[in-house]
Design a binder for these strands. Sequence first.
DNA 1: GTGCGTGCAAAGACTTTGCACGTAC
DNA 2: GTACGTGCAAAGTCTTTGCACGCAC
Lengths: 155, 155
Amino acid sequence: MDLNPIASGSDANNLHVTEPLCAVFRRKLKDEGQKYTPERAQILDTIIQLDDIFDAEQLQAELKGASIRVSKATIYRTLKLLQEAGIIQQVLVDSELARYQLAYGRRPRDLLIRLDTNEIITIDAPELIDLRNRICSAHGLKAQGHRFQVFAAEG
Amino acid sequence: MDLNPIASGSDANNLHVTEPLCAVFRRKLKDEGQKYTPERAQILDTIIQLDDIFDAEQLQAELKGASIRVSKATIYRTLKLLQEAGIIQQVLVDSELARYQLAYGRRPRDLLIRLDTNEIITIDAPELIDLRNRICSAHGLKAQGHRFQVFAAEG
DNA sequence: GTGCGTGCAAAGACTTTGCACGTAC
DNA sequence: GTACGTGCAAAGTCTTTGCACGCAC
C-alpha cells in the first residue's frame, strides 16, 4: 500500500518525477518529527486512486467505500499536511467548499468551467508556464505555481 | 450619492462603458421587482470608492467609517445581488474567506500572489483574453470570464 | 397600502481544537 | 517508553435564514 509511484507515467501532465508520492510525504513527516500512520497512508492512497478534484466529504466517502473509517478531523489534518508537502493543492472553483487535487510533479491543471451546466473540464494551456514566468521575472520573483480558470457557456 | 459613473476613465482596465454602475444595479433590481434602498446604494458606493479587493468585514468597517451602519445580513444579501448583476465577482485567493472585487465593464484583473509576504499584486495579462477565447472555441463554447493567479516568491 | 428589505438572533455548514486513549518509532 | 496521532464532541468562523417591524414604490 505504500507503493504509489507517480507513474501513471503516460500522462503527459506528469513531469519527470521518479519518486513515489508516499516517499515524498514520508520524508516531509520525518523531517518534522511526525509519524507516517496508516490513516495518513490510506488517505494519500485514496487521493492518488481518485485522480480527480475532490473535497473532504468525497474523500471520506471514498475511504468508507474501501471499509476504511477515518474521522473528519483526521482528514482535515492530513489534507493540511499534504498541502504543506506540495502533494495536493486547493482548486477554489467557488467559495462554498474547499476542493483539492494532486499537484506534486504535475503541471497545474487549468480548468474550463461551464456556467450553464456547472461542468468542470480539465484543460491544458502550456503557454501559461511561459507567461507566468515572464510576469514573475518582471517583478523580480520566481514563479511557484498558478491557477487558471475559464468560465464559459454555450455560445 | 447615486451618481457613480464608471469614469475613473483614464484607467486602462476599464472598457468603454458609459452607464453608471448604480444604474446597472437599479435596472437589475427593477427587472426583478426589487427595491433600490439606501443600504444597497451605500454598499455599492463604498465598493466603488474602495476600488480594491475586499471582504464582507472590511466592507462593513468602511461603511462604519462613514457612519453608515449596515448589518452583516444585509451586506451578504447585497453582495449576492451585486454578483448576480455582474457588478462584482469573487476573487478566491484562498478558501478562508470570500473576497470580492469590482468586475462590471472591466477586464478581469489577474493576480500575482507572493507566497513569502502574502502580498497580492494586480497585474495585467491581456494575452489571456485571446487564449481563453481560443480554448472556448475549441470546445464550442463562449468565454464569459476568467481567473488567473500566479504564485511567486523571492527568487 | 403592500410587498420587499432590514436588523437581530438563531441556525447552518464547514473546519478547527481540547482531551483521553492509542500507537509509530 | 515517549511523543505524536486519532476519534469524539465541543467550539469557532463565516454565511444564511426566520421573524417582526419599517420603508420604497
